[in-house]
């Protein structure tokens, strides 16, 4: 039962993370091209810091850091009369009321909290990559389009929302679809974040943790669980490829790009 649940977990993570990452990315990109300097610095800093730090070290580090940040924030609000230092040597100590989740809360709260942290981490990391893609896409929208909008008397805000945003997706989609593929392939890292995802179950099923499982009545089935996972991911990738191709075709329609021209000239 847990296994099927974990497949849903992965799908849910993808379904929640992708829009969240686009939101983060949109915010980052608009901040990075803002006219107000501090806001621009925040946007650019976010993009380059997160993109610069490599690999799963980020995932391992970030969850603990986020967790400690939340607990510290709650600690300073909830227990103002706590006089001991928070870092006692190697331990991170906050008052009991600031623990997240509360040690008295039921199991599912703990699991949901872990899942929430995972989503936040994924969204933050992928948001930075998305921000970079969208930033490039916004700059790729032909200048003439914005100028035309201005000539029609649109305000800056109107030009941004009505002209720039609808048009930028064509330029952003190749980069975004790349990111989507990477995101799919990053989901097994959930297991590192302590969420019971499919990798966790594939490891648990069919064997004890000791390496001496060759004397089982059945063979070592974990190989087949992982084979199934491999096929699952391959299928998922293939389906995404096909769908994204369609979306790209739909988006290029009527755009001022080579693809759009080719579609226009193609015999109807």
């Amino acid at each position: 039962m847990g296994l099927y649940w974990s497949v849903l977990t992965v799908l849910a993570l993808l379904a929640i993370t992708a829009p969240a990452a686009i939101l983060f990315g949109f915010g980052g990109a608009t901040a990075a091209r803002s006219r107000i300097a501090p806001l621009r610095w925040v946007g650019k800093g976010y993009i380059s810091i997160v993109r610069g730090v490599p690999d799963i070290a980020f995932f391992l580090f970030f969850v603990i850091a986020l967790d400690q940040l939340f607990e510290w924030a709650r600690h300073s609000v909830l227990c103002p009369d706590w006089d001991q230092p928070i870092r006692q040597g190697n331990d991170f100590v906050v008052c009991a009321a600031a623990k997240l989740p509360l040690s008295s809360s039921p199991q599912w709260v703990h699991e949901t909290y872990g899942f929430f942290l995972a989503i936040l981490t994924f969204a933050l990391v992928f948001g930075a990559f998305t921000a970079n893609v969208l930033f490039g896409a916004m700059r790729a929208v032909p200048r003439a389009q914005i100028e035309t909008a201005e000539a029609y008397g649109m305000s800056e805000r109107q030009a941004f929302w009505r002209i720039m945003v609808p048009q930028m997706w064509v330029y952003a989609l190749p980069g975004l679809s790349n990111l989507w593929m990477v995101l799919i392939k990053a989901t097994p890292l959930l297991f590192l974040l302590g969420v019971e995802d499919i990798v966790y179950w594939a490891r648990e099923l069919g064997g004890t943790k000791t390496p001496q499982f060759t004397d089982y009545p059945h063979g070592d089935w974990r190989m087949w669980y992982f084979f199934a996972l491999l096929v699952f991911y391959l299928l998922f990738t293939k389906v995404s490829e096909v769908v994204l191709d369609r979306v790209m075709k739909r988006l290029t329609k009527g755009q001022a790009t080579t693809g759009g021209e080719a579609q226009r000239k193609a015999p109807a």
């Binding site: 799919i184 392939k185 097994p188 594939a202 491999l230 991911y233």
Partner: peptide, 16 residues
């Protein structure tokens, strides 16, 4: 098309 992570796991159990 598949995560390297899964490839590692699969290969390990395959070799086992």
């Amino acid at each position: 098309g598949s995560p390297l992570f899964i490839q590692f796991f699969f290969a390990y159990f395959l070799f086992l």
